[in-house]
């Protein structure tokens, strides 16, 4: 076998230029087409068909049957609170991961990542054990004499939120961490040299620079929250029924696939609308390497 010498032939260069991306991206694109876009298209199509004719009936019944509209509203409500909660809890941790003591940082990083590896169902189930009537939390509160009767900690909005925030926190922290790493921290040092207190330097320099990361992490966590299924099913009551649970019910118990498709399409459409509006307001594409922040 001979080692090829650099070949400057322009024809070959351009062939490579076309071929290499095709080879690299082709399999994934084919996969996405056949296993995502094609079935998605079928689903959209199905949602508009009633007895072989085009119709908006499925969408009409989505909007006129209170249970679907309610579930959609609940889904947005829970997702927003979950995202805000994850942000408030996650921002300080991400900040510490950027500026804190190196050895402690490594430990914190491990603590953030390990739960990320655990299955959703396992993490949701563990709250059942912690928050139960005879669970650790209630037993502790009774032992220290704070309460005499166990509190109802499970099967309500609170337990759903705790479960979801716990699941979303690592993603929030890691996304913020990635964005914060790109901030030039000499700017903070410069502010301090010019007499700003550390607090002032953080608020006037670091925090504004971290906002694109905040916007991106917020959107990412919010969108994933919209699709939660098992956590509200295990930790919630019927009041916390989210749209995925309804879609599942309609598809597998009511056998109304066109209606389930319509609900899925509606969720997708609303999500895309949110992303577009959000992007207009905060231009998050900067973070993905568009214009420099």
């Amino acid at each position: 076998m001979t080692v090829p010498v650099a070949d400057p032939a322009p024809a070959r260069m351009s062939l490579n230029r076309a071929l290499v991306p095709a080879l690299l991206l082709g399999p994934t694109l084919l996969w996405i087409f056949f296993f995502f876009l094609w079935p998605l298209g079928l689903m959209v199509w199905q949602s508009f068909i009633v007895k072989d004719a085009f119709s908006l009936d499925h969408y009409a019944s989505l909007f006129t049957t209170p249970i679907y509209a309610r579930a959609l509203w609940t889904t947005f409500e829970i997702s927003i609170i979950c995202t805000v909660g994850s942000l408030i809890l996650g921002y300080p941790v991400a900040y510490y991961l950027v500026v804190g003591d190196a050895r402690i940082r490594a430990v914190v990083m491990i603590l953030v990542i390990i739960p990320y590896w655990l299955d959703y169902i396992v993490r949701s189930f563990s709250w059942l054990i912690l928050f139960g009537r005879r669970g650790l939390v209630n037993r502790f509160l009774i032992d220290i004499g704070l309460i005499t009767e166990p509190l109802q900690l499970l099967y309500n909005l609170g337990s759903v939120l705790v479960g979801m925030i716990q699941i979303m926190l690592p993603l929030m922290i890691l996304t913020l961490f990635g964005a914060m790493l790109r901030i030039n921290r000499q700017l903070v040092a410069a502010a301090e040299i010019h007499g700003a207190s550390p607090w002032r330097a953080f608020w006037s320099v670091f925090f504004p620079l971290s906002l694109p990361g905040v916007y991106a992490a917020f959107l990412l966590v919010f969108i994933i929250s919209l699709g939660f299924y098992i956590t509200p099913a295990l930790l919630g009551s019927p009041k916390e029924t989210m749209i995925s649970q309804i879609i599942m019910l309609v598809a597998t118990e009511l056998f109304d696939w066109p209606l389930a498709s319509a609900a899925g399409v509606l969720l997708l459409a609303v999500t895309i609308a949110v992303v577009i509006a959000y992007n207009r307001a905060f231009s998050i594409e900067r973070l993905w390497g568009g214009k420099e922040a």
Binding site: F125, L128, I129, G132, R133, R134, G135, Q152, L154, Y155, A233, L234, S237, P238
Partner: peptide, 20 residues
């Protein structure tokens, strides 16, 4: 009704932890 369960495992968890 504290819980309207949907899964088989939930029922067992509920009596094994004396949830109801």
């Amino acid at each position: 009704i504290k819980k309207w369960f949907t899964q088989g495992g939930e029922q067992q968890q509920m009596i094994e932890n004396e949830e109801v």
